[in-house]
């Protein structure tokens, strides 16, 4: 059930320059959130900024009643969130959306573009280590982030655009020359990355579950601001997604 909660910030950590992990106390989210779900955060009660910022759930601890998010500062909203001090109260809307799974195959591989790893790490918390996890980042500046991910998911194989970290290439290059027929894929990253993945591997893999990004108004199904074109019409990323079967998405129509 989607609700607004007041949640104290328990701890924050800059895992890499400009990338923050926040730990919040919110027993209902900790209890109800499932991998693929997200929350919408608001740092201030004023109308500047007006809208909440959608962020994937990274982890939960139902016993302690806490959950975590991990985000990159890209604009005013994430800047405000990164400036919150432990003890301050954030407003949390959630949990929103459907989840990854069920998967058609026992073997599940994960493909992540930078911060797209967030819901996949939560999926990992729920099901255990992935058979494979491919992470793509930009350049050497992402090293602390990549190391942070590796510490949580040692199976991670790293790719970077310029080859300065791991192999040169994109996360989806991890799928090259692999037998994908009996593998399910869980994918999250920038929309163009997911589009490319489907274009290259869609014919060989029947179960590709992608978590999409769209600008959002309400984050609860009310505004129809976040729709994507799918085989079954224009559907809301917030509550009909964010996880979709890749073959259902009309990729040519997709943009942020």
């Amino acid at each position: 059930m989607i609700r607004d909660y007041q949640a104290p910030l328990l701890a924050k950590e800059e895992v890499s320059p400009g990338i923050w992990r926040l730990s919040l106390e919110c027993p209902p989210i900790a209890r109800e959130a499932r991998p693929g779900n997200f929350v919408l955060l608001k740092a201030v009660s004023s109308s500047a900024p007006l809208l909440r910022r959608p962020l994937g759930v990274l982890e939960t601890d139902a016993e302690k009643g806490t959950f975590g998010v991990l985000f990159r500062v890209v604009g005013a909203g994430t800047e405000l969130l990164s400036g919150m001090a432990p003890g301050q109260i954030l407003s949390v809307r959630g949990p929103v959306g459907g989840q990854f799974g069920p998967f058609e195959h026992g073997r599940v591989w994960a493909v992540a573009g930078t911060l797209g790893v967030v819901p996949l790490l939560f999926l990992r918390q729920a099901r255990g280590a992935f058979d494979k996890l491919f992470l793509g980042v930009g350049n050497a500046g992402w090293r602390p982030f990549a190391e942070w991910v590796r510490a949580r998911a040692p199976e991670m194989e790293l790719f970077s655009d310029d080859g300065s970290l791991g192999k040169k290439g994109f996360a989806i290059d991890g799928l090259k020359d692999q037998a994908l027929e009996d593998v399910s894929l869980a994918v999250c990253g920038p929309n163009p990355m997911m589009k490319a993945l489907y274009g290259q591997y869609g014919a060989r893999c029947a179960d590709i579950q992608v978590s999409l990004e769209r600008r959002m108004g309400c984050g609860m199904g009310g505004c129809f601001g976040c729709v994507v074109d799918t085989e079954t019409g224009r559907r809301r990323v917030c509550i009909d997604g964010p996880v979709f079967q890749a073959r259902e998405v009309k990729w040519d129509e997709l943009h942020l």
Partner: peptide, 23 residues
């Protein structure tokens, strides 16, 4: 009615622009 294609919401200072188009 499918409503409008393309971007549908955009945040502005203390406001929101929408182009849902009556979906």
């Amino acid at each position: 009615w499918p409503g409008n294609p393309g971007a549908r919401v955009w945040e502005t200072p203390s406001g929101i622009l929408n182009s849902i188009g009556l979906q």
